[in-house]
């Protein structure tokens, strides 16, 4: 049941993604409305899977790799839909972000999806708080990644004077840059709180706030990159291309912290392993 509904949500996201690609080839404004509706229905089903999981497992439903991947995809869709309904002219973002949603949901289904008993060490009120904050922050940064790519394409086009269909399809540089900044001011506190609550929880579980395990180290590096970006934006007015590149690097670090560390390095966060 749980898997079927997840697959149903995935199928709806995939339809939304296909339509988002069609939109790039032949931009008709009403497509965006349809994509929004289809993703919203997918999102409702997706939300339901967490409730179902919670009911089935009798515990907080985001504890292993499968669950974190699907939660990340959920968070990304949530913010994508919020942007779609809140900002005019940004919805071509669908074409850039839906592939990530679909990819992560697919990935979540390719790792073991069963209900594993939770290691006693992980049982704490700080677990849901830490996980939700961290992954919502990650989802926000996934969007800044997409918006940065859109910015770089648009910037390149305007700078090199290659004005065409793509230029008219993509939003203006200022809108993209402002949105990136706004998302950074939401994502950064989430990431910060995610790390703080994580370390409080670590104190409960392992008796130490910080033990330099690879996940912690890489999180800190990621945090430093975003902190630097925020600082530079606020003080010397870093913006545009530079800021977009840093946001892309930042998301690369998030991906590595989230997946690469699990895959390549071992440490305390080993419950997030691939198998």
């Amino acid at each position: 049941m749980y898997l079927y509904i997840t697959i149903l949500a995935l199928a709806l996201y995939a339809i939304g993604m296909t339509l988002a690609f069609v939109y790039v080839a032949s931009p008709k404004p009403h497509y965006l409305k349809w994509i929004g509706k289809i993703l919203l229905i997918g999102f409702i089903f997706h939300t339901f899977t967490f409730l179902l999981r919670y009911y089935q497992a009798g515990r907080f439903p985001i504890t292993n790799l499968h669950e974190s991947l699907t939660f990340f995809a959920w968070g990304l869709t949530l913010f994508l839909l919020i942007l779609h309904y809140k900002y005019k002219g940004i919805s071509v973002l669908f074409s850039f972000a839906t592939p990530i949603v679909v990819l992560f949901l697919l990935l979540s289904l390719s790792v073991p999806t069963g209900l594993f008993p939770l290691a006693p060490i992980l049982k704490s009120i700080w677990l849901p708080i830490h996980v939700i904050l961290a992954f919502l922050g990650d989802a926000i940064f996934a969007l800044t990644f997409c918006i940065s790519i859109m910015y770089l394409i648009q910037e390149h086009r305007i700078k090199k004077k290659k004005i065409g269909k793509m230029t008219s399809l993509l939003p203006s540089l200022t809108l993209l840059d402002q949105l990136n900044y706004r998302l950074l001011t939401i994502g950064f506190p989430l990431l910060t709180l995610g790390i703080i609550t994580g370390s409080i929880w670590a104190e409960y579980a392992w008796g130490s706030y910080w033990s330099w395990d690879p996940k912690e180290t890489w999180s800190l590096i990621t945090w430093l990159v975003y902190a630097a970006l925020l600082h530079q934006r606020l003080t010397v007015g870093w913006r545009g291309k530079k800021a977009a590149w840093v946001a892309i690097i930042g998301f690369g670090l998030i991906l590595f912290t989230f997946l690469g560390v699990n895959l390549l390095l071992s440490g305390l966060h080993s419950y997030g392993r691939w198998s």
Binding site: Q154, I158, I163, T167, S168, L170, P171, S172, L173, T174, L175, Q178
Partner: peptide, 21 residues
């Protein structure tokens, strides 16, 4: 109506793609 034709019109359209508002 979307495609800019005159030079000054093109300039305005470009400005909209840079500044938005």
């Amino acid at each position: 109506a979307n495609s800019a034709v005159s030079i000054s019109f093109a300039a305005v359209e470009l400005a909209k793609k840079i500044f938005d508002d």
